[in-house]
Write a protein that binds this DNA or RNA. Structure first.
Lengths: 337, 337
DNA sequence: ATGAAAGCGCTAACAA
DNA sequence: TTGTTAGCGCTTTCAT
């Protein structure tokens, strides 16, 4: 790899001049020199050493994409289609800005924090961050960052977040069920925090509004403490007769449940209606195709990147919170009762 | 961020000494000094500036993960569950080695090449690379690299590759079909290159061995030149009556075809048997669950990283080619005829 | 056991 | 229009 200095020597000019033509500051360079330099660059395939540049400029051109994982939940995080799509969307937007993505996937937030400092990343996009980690992050890293799908009470600290209307979405789809005559509805999720909690609230909003009573039993907790999924599915199966509809906190579970139930002789939506949340590929692939609420993950990633760069450039980035709209998409997993 | 120099000044010692204790070269440092330095590091949360380190060492600690995409095929590459899983596997192995992943997703190989040079990456894992790009890569980048699932005739140049037994896998599953009495079998794919071509050869091996004649018509080309998938699916539907089984080059298509056909009143496997290749999540999610050939993507990524580091450390990395084994997994999409 | 100093490749303020 | 030079933070060789 040829360097600026070498080129300067070869042409018997200064590094500044070379640097200037490299950066298109050609206002102050004679066209003869420009030409000479350009030729050399071409001939020797000059590419700048980014480390040196970053060191000198005290920037990095790197955007960190950090995902906090859950060791007992994922063996391979990006396998999750959600994470994959988000990664892809973020990558392409960041690349379009001439920056690079460094991927941090870890269940140890301080590992992420150290890497970020070490690499002097210019900005950070965070996904899957819970309260304590958010606090730590906020305290230890002084770079622009935007959270995705984060639900930390904003009383604790200010942060910019891009998420979706989790609560409203779940409210809408539950209302949809109710409008089809359903009155005995259960909510199924694997936790009761963050977005899933919001969705749960939306569920309750809808049934409360419809005058349907809610009992703790109607929250079916999936996979508490890593118990075997098929055991839980068996339990779900047992409870089919108590309800006319299930609202699942995610398509992932909805699809698993549909398949399990079908395999065990229950007809959907005849015996029970099922709806999901996310509108991912799976929801289109199951049969009956899943009625669910749609969210646009690529848009989410795009907006997160947009905001991050506004922060980096110290422009106005608008509200701290942005909640992207969602909507119900009707397919075939709900019947009128 | 505190620097080595600052710490040295505060303690009134030299940067060399500080650097030495940072790197555990404590053989030549008095334990009093060690203690002092350690405390400072602790207190001020010292983290090394990686740019500076890399510049000095002429290394980067970065492994590039480059994926060549196909503009008209993908809007978002990582959305593809295969790419996502591979990314996740590679990331975690690379992290375990104390290196970082920089993601390059682009349809322009020279963009990738320049970035690689600029960042002075220590090694490269390449996915989705075709012949011309492989040649360019080989010529322009002088760093260790390993290809994943690459099929360039090795006569052109030497490269290390980790892939799977595409041909054998497709041979096995076709044989499986034949063993179930099938004689009229079509092969469906969206191209006839690289791995898909190998799979096709495996298909032909099996039918030839069984004395079944092959006609060009039996290769059903999906999505040639980006034509609309549903049109093609309609065509596939029309041809159901000519065959008793379809072997699809990937689960992706197999699942789409199953759903399309089911939606149009054909029963699977009663009216036609269908098999896929890859054993991804989709194959477990469709009904009937797909009989397919299993490959282990995480293992593939892990081995690619292993080999890459052997090359980086100039150790023996064994064969240039490694072909990971695959096997048929029987589910419910095939019936005996 | 400790330190001085050169250098990695590039940038940018300043001088000429 | 072009050149000089002092860093950026760290590593490393060679003295002491």
């Amino acid at each position: 790899m040829i360097t600026i200095k070498e080129m300067a020597q070869m042409l018997d000019i200064s590094t500044t001049t070379v640097s200037n033509v490299i950066h298109g500051k050609t206002g102050e360079v004679s066209s003869a020199t420009i030409e000479k330099v350009r030729r050399l660059i071409e001939e020797y395939d000059y590419v700048p050493n980014i480390n040196a540049r970053n060191l000198a400029r005290n920037e990095s051109g790197i955007i960190g994409l950090a995902m906090k994982t859950n060791r007992d939940k994922y063996e391979n995080f990006i396998k999750d289609p959600f994470a994959g799509e988000l990664t892809g969307a973020v990558e392409s937007c960041v690349r379009a800005k001439g920056y690079f993505i460094m991927l941090y996937i870890s269940d140890d937030i301080s590992e992420i924090i150290n890497s970020v400092a070490s690499w002097n990343v210019d900005g950070l996009i965070l996904f899957g961050i819970a309260k304590e980690d958010g606090i730590l992050l906020k305290k230890r890293v002084k770079k622009p960052m935007v959270f995705v799908d984060c639900y930390i009470e904003d009383s604790i600290f200010e942060y910019v977040n891009v998420g979706i209307e989790d609560r409203k979405g779940c409210y809408e789809i539950t209302k949809h069920l109710i409008s089809k005559g359903h009155k005995k509805i259960a909510y199924l999720a694997d936790n009761c925090e963050g977005g899933d909690y919001e969705r749960f609230k939306g569920f309750k909003d809808a049934i409360t509004e419809a005058g349907i009573s809610y009992d703790e039993e109607d929250f079916i907790m999936l996979r508490p403490n890593g118990a075997d999924l098929s055991l839980l599915l068996a339990d779900v199966h047992r409870r089919v007769k108590s309800y006319t509809a299930f609202v699942c906190a995610s398509d992932y579970y909805a699809v698993h449940i549909i398949n399990y139930l079908k395999d065990h002789g229950v007809s959907i939506p005849e015996d029970i209606s099922i709806v999901g949340f996310d509108d991912n590929e799976y929801s289109r692939m199951v049969r009956p195709a899943l009625t669910t609420v749609h969210q646009d993950i690529s848009q989410k990633g795009g907006i997160a990147v947009e905001k991050l760069f506004q922060m980096i450039h110290e422009e106005d980035y608008g509200e701290n919170y942005t909640r992207l709209p969602v909507y119900v998409v009707e397919r075939d997993s709900v019947k009128e009762v």
